[in-house]
Each structure stands twice: as structure tokens, then as C-alpha cells.
Computed example of a mutant assay.
Amino acid sequence: MRVVVRYRIEGGLTDALGHLVACDGDVCTIRTRKADVVIQLSEVVAAKEVPPAPERRRPAQ
């Protein structure tokens, strides 16, 4: 499932956008384009499922 999760970090909030790969009682793991992000559930402010990413366009020739 593809999700966006808004969570607290030092100095404010940030988002993780990617696929939910694991979730237990304390943490969830989101696989973003760059890396897996492990988020403490106590830091989550909001989360929702989002549609699949649009397909990348080929460069014009």
C-alpha cells in the first residue's frame, strides 16, 4: 500500500511518501525512493493511503 505519513522531527514536521512495508505496535517502515524510513508511531501526526505514482514520461525525441 502506498502511503504518506506526516510525523514530528526536531524542529517541526516532515513527510514520508512511499510503500508501507511493515507496521507493529511501536514503529512503521515506509520504503521511499531513497531509503527505508522507520517512524515511531508516537511521532505520527497524520497518515493516509495515496494512489500509485504516475508513470514516468519518456524524454521527447
Score class of each variant (00 low, 15 high):
residue 42 S to K: 11
residue 20 L to A: 07
residue 52 P to N: 14
residue 61 Q to V: 13
residue 44 V to H: 00
residue 58 R to G: 11
residue 58 R to N: 13
residue 32 T to E: 12
residue 46 A to C: 08
residue 26 D to N: 13
residue 55 E to A: 12
residue 14 T to A: 10
residue 14 T to W: 00
residue 59 P to L: 15
residue 57 R to K: 15
residue 37 V to F: 00
residue 16 A to R: 01
residue 51 P to E: 15
residue 39 I to R: 00
residue 26 D to R: 14
residue 30 I to Q: 01
residue 19 H to K: 06
residue 43 E to W: 01
residue 22 A to Q: 06
residue 21 V to N: 00
residue 56 R to N: 07
residue 46 A to E: 13
residue 30 I to S: 01
residue 21 V to Y: 00
residue 18 G to L: 04
residue 24 D to E: 09
residue 45 V to Q: 06
residue 60 A to G: 07
residue 27 V to N: 07
residue 39 I to L: 07
residue 52 P to S: 12
residue 47 A to P: 01
residue 2 R to G: 02
residue 50 V to F: 04
residue 23 C to M: 13
residue 50 V to A: 10
residue 58 R to I: 08
residue 12 G to E: 02
residue 59 P to C: 15
residue 7 Y to I: 09
residue 44 V to L: 07
residue 9 I to Y: 02
residue 47 A to F: 07
residue 34 K to N: 14
residue 13 L to H: 11
residue 16 A to K: 04
residue 31 R to P: 03
residue 3 V to R: 03
residue 22 A to L: 00
residue 25 G to H: 08
residue 1 M to Q: 05
residue 5 V to R: 01
residue 42 S to L: 14
residue 3 V to D: 02
residue 45 V to P: 03
residue 6 R to K: 11
residue 54 P to R: 11
residue 18 G to E: 04
residue 20 L to T: 09
residue 6 R to P: 01
residue 43 E to V: 08
residue 1 M to Y: 06
residue 9 I to T: 10
residue 51 P to H: 06
residue 8 R to H: 08
residue 61 Q to G: 09
residue 48 K to W: 11
residue 29 T to H: 06
residue 37 V to G: 00
residue 50 V to E: 08
residue 39 I to V: 14
residue 60 A to D: 15
residue 47 A to S: 14
residue 48 K to R: 10
residue 48 K to Y: 09
residue 14 T to R: 10
residue 45 V to L: 01
residue 59 P to W: 08
residue 60 A to Q: 14
residue 5 V to S: 03
residue 14 T to L: 03
residue 54 P to E: 12
residue 18 G to N: 04
residue 25 G to M: 11
residue 29 T to W: 02
residue 37 V to R: 02
residue 15 D to H: 12
residue 16 A to I: 06
residue 48 K to L: 08
